[in-house]
């Protein structure tokens, strides 16, 4: 419960935040804090400084463009995504966010924090990978855009570098999506998860089976094709106290089929 000493600043603009983050490579951006504060409580991580993004207007808001593209500010909370009428353009986003943790965490936790944490058990990395989202990252040198499939680099590691901030998640139009998970307790931590999108081609992203989401493109939505795609991925999932590797490997196949079936229905 007792954090190490830490600095804190609450910048009012994105530029200021980037400056503060660039000034100290031990500084970390603080979004909703629903993971980071816990890590610090355990003293498993101890940033020199927390740059609180809560006061930055540019990072807020959920917008629906005329072409159906969703632009989600990185500081949008899960609750906002559940309740937002704009986000309903891609209903799976609200459906999945409603399953994350609990009311309290959904009120504070943000899409940007969820993605930047890159915890393999998180819901949103595989979902965003399946939806083909684009991540906008801002730094001193300006903005760049990275597709979700390239955003996640490892456990707790993403394309966001020192002195950079994830500002926006852009989700293309589409409606035929699915998500399935086996969790620790009802709507608990994911033991294995799969997200699918069949808008045009078929994209599946598997969670909890590797350090980052495993993205697959089966040739069709047929169960056999989906199962074959998962088998061909030669998954070697981690074992832990909640599941042996073999079980996760099996679930990946089952959940991929279920996610695709939901997407088709």
């Amino acid at each position: 419960m007792l954090l190490r000493e830490v600095g804190y600043a609450r910048p009012g603009s994105l530029g200021e935040a980037i400056e503060l983050l660039a000034a100290d490579d031990g500084a970390r951006a603080l979004a909703g804090g629903q993971t980071l504060i816990n890590v610090m409580k355990a003293r498993a991580g101890s940033p020199d400084a927390l740059i609180d993004l809560a006061g930055i207007e540019e990072l807020k808001g959920i917008e629906l463009r005329a072409d159906g593209t969703l632009e989600i500010g990185a500081m949008a909370t899960y609750t906002e995504l559940v309740e937002s009428s704009e986000a309903r353009a891609r209903p799976i986003i609200g459906e999945v966010c409603a399953q994350i943790a609990d009311v309290q965490v959904r009120n504070r936790g943000t899409i940007g924090g969820n993605l930047c944490t890159s915890d393999p058990t998180n819901h949103l990395p595989p979902l965003m990978a399946a939806l083909g989202a684009q991540m906008t990252i801002a730094g001193a040198g300006g903005e760049r855009t990275v597709p979700a499939s390239e955003f996640f680099l490892g456990v707790y590691m993403t394309a966001v570098g020192v002195g950079e901030v994830l500002t926006k998640i852009t989700v293309p139009a589409g409606r035929s999506d699915g998500f399935a998970a086996v969790t620790l307790g009802v709507e608990g931590t994911c033991i294995a998860s799969a997200a699918a999108s069949v808008n045009g081609g078929v994209t599946i992203a598997l969670g909890c089976v590797d350090a980052v989401p495993v993205v697959l493109h089966p040739g069709s939505v047929d169960e056999d094709a989906v199962r074959e795609a998962v088998r061909d991925a030669n998954l070697d999932p981690p074992s832990d106290v909640h599941a042996p590797s073999s079980y996760r490997k099996h679930l990946a196949e089952v959940l991929a089929v279920r996610a695709v079936n939901q997407a088709r229905s």
Binding site: M1, Y8, R10, L30, G33, Q34, I37, N38, K41, L50, D52, A54, T79, V103, Q104, V105, N107, R108
Partner: peptide, 15 residues
Amino acid sequence: GSLVKSCMLLAVQAD
């Protein structure tokens, strides 16, 4: 107005 867990929020964030 928003329900939160006060162990996952720094006091300074509630300023």
